Computed example of a mutant assay.
Amino acid sequence: MQSNATLKTPGKDTAPWYAHRWPWLLMLGPAAVVVAGVHTTYLAYSNQDALVVDDYYKQGKAINHDLSRDRVAAGMKAEAGLGYDAARGQLRGSLRSFGQPLSGKFTLQLVHSTQPEKDVRLTVETDAGGAFTAPLPMLDIGRWAVQIEPDQRAWRLHGEWNWPQEREIRLLPPAP
């Protein structure tokens, strides 16, 4: 006599597919790619691309003018020293030409390498000894492009400053 109960065959599993772990593990890779793609799309559309400019041709032509300003700075042996005192929130510096102090008003720019909203533009006035101080509440950690030029924009000094690894920076014109 045979019973109505079915006999299980060894090696044959009757559980549904979703009860096994292997299909889920195989789907994990493509699911992670989809999530990463959605996140990348969100980042691309929610953040402004600050590296692209509309007038790239005009800026490219202006490079030659900037190089002439570098040559003027080299001819007058201009140099600058900058230091930041985080405890006091002060940027201090000095300007010299032919070893003598430079006096007057100057524009000092600190440009953040990746975040333009953190850029700083200061107008500083040196004393008779060529020294100046400017209030700067907080200088973020990072790489900064530094540029100093007089109000007339006849010459400029520029360089890179890795704050806080470099506590002070000395700007010299590029060698001819």
Rank of each mutant, 00 (worst) to 15 (best):
A131E: 13
T114S: 05
P135W: 00
G99E: 07
K8G: 07
L51P: 00
L7V: 13
A86Y: 03
P30L: 01
S103P: 05
A78Y: 08
T9Y: 13
M138R: 09
A74S: 14
T40W: 14
G75F: 05
W22Q: 07
Y45G: 05
A5M: 06
Q90A: 00
L26S: 00
T114A: 09
L26R: 04
H20N: 12
T41L: 15
A86R: 05
G142D: 00
L82A: 00
D66Q: 14
T14C: 05
L67Q: 02
I63T: 06
D127Y: 07
D66W: 14
A36Q: 00
A50N: 12
D55W: 04
R92I: 11
N47L: 01
H20D: 06
K58S: 11
P135D: 01
Y84C: 05
P135A: 00
G89P: 12
V124R: 01
D55F: 13
I141Y: 06
T6I: 11
R121W: 10
L51H: 15
V38F: 10
L122Y: 10
L122H: 04
I141N: 11
V111C: 01
V111P: 06
V124D: 03
K58G: 10
G130W: 02
P16W: 06
D119E: 04
D70Y: 13
D85Y: 15
V35R: 01
A73H: 08
T9Q: 12
M76E: 15
L25P: 11
Q115D: 08
A5F: 10
W24N: 07
A32P: 14
P116T: 01
V38M: 06
D127P: 09
F132Y: 05
R21V: 15
L7E: 10
V120N: 04
S68C: 04
L139I: 08
